[in-house]
Simulated scan of single mutants.
Amino acid sequence: SHLFEQLDMTARTNDLECWKLFCLVVEKQGLNAAADFADIEPSRLSRVINSLEAELGSPLLVHNRRPLQTTSFGDQAYAMAKALLAQHALMLETLKGDKDRMKGLITLAIPAGIGPLFVTPQLLEFQQIFPKIEFELITLTSKAEEVFYNHPDKVVHVSIGYGVPGTGDIVSRYSGKMEFIPCCSPGYIKKHGHIVDPSECAAHTGLSYTGGTRTKTQELQNGGVVKQLKWKKSLSFQSLSDLKNACLLGAGIAGDIPLIHCIDELEEGKLINVLPGWKRPAAGCYLYSTKHFVKYRRVKTFLDWMAEKHRELLEQIDNRVRLLA
């Protein structure tokens, strides 16, 4: 049975399940989408929101408005509810967990598309060493060091992504640098000609990544020279897999595909490195956790082990690039 099937629809503001549903409505940007995700009827979900609003005496949502909007009061309630739910999840994890056991669940947040090379084989290897460890993977939609604070109803133990060394309550393990490669398909070059300088981008179609795990690339560097990227027309993607597929189909030039996503295609000649010498600056790759969770043996062991595996992988990729050059 689903988590919310037993929900009492007369529940008031002290019911955490009601606040989970309210946060879900905000995050899914609509009652129907949230109801589909929670596997409940939209009418039941609507009654939950109405019940909260009636007890609080103020509207949380701007009703009869598409797309969904929260009121200023709703924005305040959402921020406070997220913090409350995160603290509740952390409380349960702390009370139920045995810090010294190499047993239990590790929830791992990763950018979309890196699983087949950068995550899944390593998790399987780790489970061979520690067979009582289980993993749950969630897709990272924000910067890796921020996910511990913006996931309201789930404890995240470890995240992987680009960033900077951890500060405050965030701890990190550095695993190397990721290069971003301007590239396109041989078919695009054949049709539109070679491109060697960013000033030529004004005659081409640009493919860009606009997902939440890093900022959009708007300029490239070559030594100490910086030039803006200005395209004749552009296509934006929130998924790196979609971006790469469009590039392979000859839809345009991608200014910044991470090397881990394109090394195979560069070796096979399916993609060509263009704009020689011009790149978005390399980004540091990190694994993150929190000071609270590195006290757990299973989390710290995994964090250190996975960082070493990623260092080895990034070194292998660097060697493959040198052979290409």
Rank of each mutant, 00 (worst) to 15 (best):
V62A: 12
V158H: 08
G74F: 02
Q228H: 10
L271P: 01
L16M: 09
C201A: 15
E136W: 06
L229C: 10
G250V: 02
H157M: 06
A86P: 00
R298P: 00
F126T: 01
Y209K: 12
L56Q: 08
L85E: 01
Q228D: 11
F135E: 02
G277C: 02
H192R: 14
E315S: 15
V274C: 12
F135S: 09
C23S: 13
E315L: 15
G250H: 06
G252M: 07
K309Q: 15
D197P: 05
W19C: 02
G284S: 13
A33I: 01
A81R: 09
N32R: 14
P59H: 07
P165T: 04
A35Q: 05
K190G: 00
K270F: 03
E308N: 15
L124R: 15
A109K: 02
M9H: 09
L303M: 11
A79Y: 08
L60R: 10
V164F: 14
K82E: 10
L229M: 07
P59T: 04
I317Y: 10
F126W: 08
L105G: 02
H2T: 02
T120L: 10
L235A: 11
H292A: 14
S72N: 11
T213E: 13
A79H: 12
G250P: 03
I260P: 00
S72I: 10
T13R: 15
F73E: 11
Y296G: 04
P281A: 05
S185T: 01
S236Y: 09
T215Q: 14
V196A: 14
G163M: 07
G193M: 11
N273V: 00
D36Y: 06
L95A: 11
